[in-house]
Design a protein around this nucleic acid. Structure first.
Length: 481
RNA sequence: GUCCCCAUCGUCUAGCCCGGUCCAGGACACCGGCCUUUCACGCCGGCGACGGGGGUUCAAAUCCCCCUGGGGACGCCA
């Protein structure tokens, strides 16, 4: 088998979105799995809408996803000479011709066809006029008028279109720039692309491209049209459906491997397996397991996949992300070692890195900045509990080994001596230490916080309660900052 | 409108190619329960689908046809 060459050809008219990322992923996987070559090509023939900014954004997204390319990025805008050459060749051989019809005239033809119940198309008025170049003139392909154009689709199987359905489409615009269909075919052929995997919204212009391959005398590559990703309303994925750009997912705290995992499972499967690491995908990927039907993007499932990948990470791998997100939230710096101890407590509890940062906030906040909700204090701290906490505080200060097991032992003894249940004290302690009703396990939280924070927070709450006489039913105006 | 593509739980899917092992399996979500110091995680259980109609066959989710439904394309965008 000859070497497989795939490509991903985004147009820099927008960010890399979910659908594009999946297409890129399939091409990348197919190339990697077969030890082939993966090429990145920027399709910027639409000089009006293409921007440098979007190119950079796309490259950044590819990079973040880990979809590395072997060649490129090539820019079509720098390859115009190549396209002109091929167009000239087509003109020479009589397979293309100049057309002087205006856009308005063509539009009228389309209207007419539509009214006759036919497919809207150019009617070939200039086809046999043998026109030469001139201002405002475009170049059209002299497409076959009868017969069928057929191709074998790697995913959907045989595909045939009656040539009467197609028209003499434009190869070169009036401003002399090549159109998409011409440029892709020339590039794919010249770059030696052996397999084109793309969204199935392209399936209906594949016959046009096949005609071009034939007119140009190039060998046909394999085509594979992957089903589209739809929004929850079954419409084409768009901004209405929330985040579109891959970079927005990064922003929201998704791991690149999780996004990849989720995306690949949209249309592809490997038995009942749900979770994959990128390396594993390269190994297991095959076109045979690709589905044919469109699928709907489901954020809940992505969240779950992300949570699973978060759980499987080494804490050290997540610490950096935690640090930078905390920093972005304007929280004071904490050291890396501390962050690495916080992470494992939160790993099973978060679905995104953003949630990781949110839930880590109480760890990072200086003791005196921890805010307490007035109602929590009112509801959870009775005089009795306050008393116990005073006593516990004293013991905590004296504890030799301030570790999870040391703490557990200490508290167990404390409870036993007084004949009370842990349930009585757990929530009050939790609230005092974290300011919240939900947190990781108390003993592990205490160990990570360390003696100083634990005792500070406890005494601060006790003082606040005293100052405001909350436990006796009288309350002050504010607690904490 | 015309052409093309597609069709298993709400969603992602296994099974379909090579008909019987499928009164259809897994996952997300949802609902119960267990675990438990809270919240999660985890574990156990539940709900839930072969779009409809015709064939072919002893037998169809699996093969064929029609219908319906959904999507896409019909650009001097890509």
């Amino acid at each position: 088998m000859s070497k497989i060459v795939t490509r991903f050809p985004p147009s820099p008219t927008g960010h890399l979105h979910i659908g594009g990322a999946r297409t890129a992923l399939f091409n990348w996987l197919y190339a990697r799995h077969n030890q082939g070559t993966f090429i990145l090509r920027i399709e910027d023939t639409d000089t009006e809408r293409s921007t440098r900014e979007m190119t950079d954004s796309i490259l950044e997204a590819m990079d973040w996803l880990g979809l590395d390319w072997d060649e490129g990025p090539y820019f079509q805008s720098r390859r115009f000479a190549l396209y002109q050459e091929q167009i000239e060749a087509l003109l020479q051989s009589g397979r293309a011709y100049y057309c002087r019809c205006t856009p308005e005239e063509v539009e009228a033809m389309r209207q007419e066809a539509r009214q006759k119940g036919e497919k809207p198309k150019y009617n070939g008025r200039c086809r046999d006029l043998d026109l030469g170049p001139g201002p405002g003139r475009v170049v059209r392909l002299k497409a076959p008028l009868s017969g069928q154009t057929v191709f074998q689709d790697l995913i959907k199987g045989a595909n045939a279109v009656d040539n009467r359905e197609l028209d003499d489409f434009i190869l070169r615009r009036a401003d002399n720039t090549p159109t998409y269909n011409l440029a892709v075919v020339v590039d794919d052929a010249l770059m030696g692309i052996t397999c084109i995997l793309r969204g199935d919204d392209h399936i209906s212009n594949t016959p046009k491209q096949v005609m071009l391959y034939q007119a140009l005398g190039f060998a046909l590559p394999d085509f594979g049209h992957v089903p589209m990703i739809l929004g929850p309303d079954k419409k084409r994925l768009s901004k209405r459906h929330g985040a579109m750009s891959v970079l927005e997912y990064r922003e929201q705290g998704y791991l690149p491997e999780a996004l990849i995992n989720y995306l690949v499972r949209l249309g592809w499967s490997h038995g009942d397996q749900e979770l994959f690491e990128p390396k594993e995908l390269v190994d297991k990927f095959s076109l045979n397991n690709l589905g044919k039907s469109a699928c709907i993007f489901n954020l809940e499932k992505l969240d779950w996949v992300n949570s699973q990948h978060i759980k499987n990470k080494q804490p050290a791998e997540l610490a950096g992300a935690l640090l930078s997100r905390l920093h972005k939230k304007g929280l004071p710096e904490i050291d890396r070692g501390y962050a690495e101890k916080i992470v494992p407590l939160l790993q099973p509890r978060v679905r995104t890195l953003e949630q990781l940062a949110e839930q880590a906030t109480f760890f990072a906040l200086p003791d005196q900045d921890l805010d307490y909700d007035r109602e929590l204090l009112e509801n959870y701290f009775t005089v009795e509990i306050k008393g116990y906490l005073q006593e516990l505080l004293a013991e905590l200060k004296r504890l030799d080994e301030f570790s999870q097991s040391g703490l557990e032992d200490l508290v167990a003894g404390f409870l036993k001596e007084r004949g009370i249940k842990f349930k009585l004290l757990a929530q009050p302690i939790r609230i005092a230490l974290t300011g919240k009703k939900a947190s990781p396990g108390l003993f592990e939280t205490m160990e990570v916080l360390g003696r100083e924070r634990v005792t500070n927070r406890l005494s601060r709450v006790l003082e606040m309660l005293d100052a405001n006489r909350i436990s006796s039913g009288k309350v002050g105006d504010s607690y904490g900052i």
